[in-house]
Structures are given as C-alpha cells and as structure tokens.
Computed example of a mutant assay.
Amino acid sequence: MKAKFSSLLILASISFLTLSSLQAQTGVGQKPEKGAKVYLDGSKKSLEKNWIYWEGPRFSAEMPIKWPEVTDPVDGGKAISSIDPAGAGGKYGAADIVTKDEFKDFRAHVEFLVMAEGGNSGVYLQNRYEVQILDGDYGLHGMAALINEHLPTSEEYNGVGKWNAYDIVFRAARFEDGKLVEKPRATVYFNGVKIHEDKEISQVWGGPNSGLDGGNDGGKGITDRPGGLKLQAEGHDVRFRNIWIKKLDLASPDTDF
C-alpha cells in the first residue's frame, strides 16, 4: 500500500509540474516554444518577410506594407504599429495584414500594446475568428472576447501603454465529404490567465470584409481552407511584437492547455 501511495504521489507531482510548465509558457515576454516560428519580432524586416496584406473585398492598400516600425514605449526596442493610411477612420479590411503561411491547428503567441484610449485592432485565427483588441470595452465585442460568442472569464488587460499577450491553441473545423462535422475550437490565455477554455466557435462574424468565409451564408458557411493569422488595421496605433506560431495536429476536439 505504501509503494502504491508513493507511486500515486509521484504521478500527481509529475502532472502538477507538467501543468505548471505549460502555464508558465504564457504571458508577456514568452519565448517561442520548440518547433515554433517567429513571425514578427518588432522589426520591419520580419514584417516584410512573413506578412502580406489580406486582399479582401474592401482592400485598398498598396504593397509594400505601410505598417511602420516604431519605438517600443516600454523598453525602447522595436515594434510594428497598425496605423496604415488605408485603414484610417476604422475602415477594417482595407489594410489588414496576414501571415504568408496558412494554418489549420496551431499554437500562437501575440503581444500587443494599445497606445491610446479606445485603441482598436484584432487577432484573427485562420483569418476568420477574431480575438478582439479594444480598449475600454469588455463586452461580447470588447477586449479579449471571442467576438460575438464568448466573453472572457476575467478582465486581465494591463491597460493603455503596457504590453499584453494572447496565448492561443486553435483547432480548425473538421469536414467529411465536404460537410462540416466539427466546429472550430480555441483556448485563450490573456497575460498568463486562462480566459477561454476550449470554446467552440460557431461562425465568422463581420461580413465579407472581415476575413475568409465572412460572406458565405452570413458567416456560417465555413470552408475547409486553411488561413493565416491576421492583424487588423482600423486607424489606431496598436503595436505588435513577439508573435510566434507553432503548427499542431490535434486529433481530438480539445484545445485546453
């Protein structure tokens, strides 16, 4: 009995350490996991190497990408700002940028800093499903929401002028014979705190200007095409750095980590 108890104690300790190490891999400043690729280190060079404009129906920008390299106001390093002339006045879809690489299942880390009150942008999973960035709002269309579907379970935003981090595991929709059989799912940590646990996502919101499949059956017509990670330009100075992504292959419909 004593040996059995010791074995159980060891297993419990290993489980705790594994969970702790996973949770430690979230938050501002997190280095890329093994097998991940850095898509944005804050430099114009990494922007031009790994990103393109998303040429949706509202696209009105011109290459090269006009998102400027700016100074990180916290530590003086480099960051990329979402200010683009074509996106002025909140014209989403006009100058959004997306990774050249496209994904099905993946793990992503995205760091952002909102420079002024009301700052607005967004992180789009597969260029479809938005994790909102919006200073001053914590509703279904507000900060850290899986937009229009899931509220964050807690408010973890660090505020204007400070860096924040989304850590995400996403599982793409599954299809059989061209028919949707499993909806997409996501788990999201915000500044190291889990705010969405394995949430199912029903559709693409925002219409055809928002991303892939936005114009298909009112956003319900999800297709099997992979998509990149997209960042939104809405005329606000939201800064980005330390974005890395690791491709996954999740057999079971579970994204929790």
Rank of each mutant, 00 (worst) to 15 (best):
H150C: 04
E55K: 14
L151G: 04
T71L: 14
D256V: 15
G29D: 00
D137M: 06
D75F: 05
W244M: 14
V110Y: 10
D177G: 12
P68N: 02
S121E: 01
W67M: 12
D177H: 05
K4S: 14
W163E: 09
T71Y: 11
P253M: 06
K230W: 11
L140V: 00
K37A: 15
K100Y: 01
L229Y: 01
A108Q: 12
V98H: 03
L151C: 02
G90I: 08
K66H: 03
N120R: 09
A36M: 11
G159E: 03
V74F: 01
Y53F: 05
G56S: 00
A251L: 12
S7C: 15
I168M: 14
L229P: 11
F106E: 03
D224E: 05
L134D: 11
R241M: 01
D177Q: 08
E130W: 02
N164C: 06
P226R: 02
N164F: 02
P208R: 14
V123Q: 11
I83P: 09
E200W: 00
N120G: 03
N164M: 00
E234I: 04
D135S: 12
E149Y: 07
H236A: 03
P208W: 15
A61E: 10
A165V: 01
Y124E: 08
G211Y: 04
D96Y: 02
E130Q: 00
H236L: 02
A145W: 07
A233H: 09
V114L: 07
H141G: 08
E69Q: 15
D41T: 05
L125V: 05
E156G: 06
K45N: 15
K183T: 10
L22T: 14
V160F: 00
G211S: 08
P57V: 12
R171L: 10
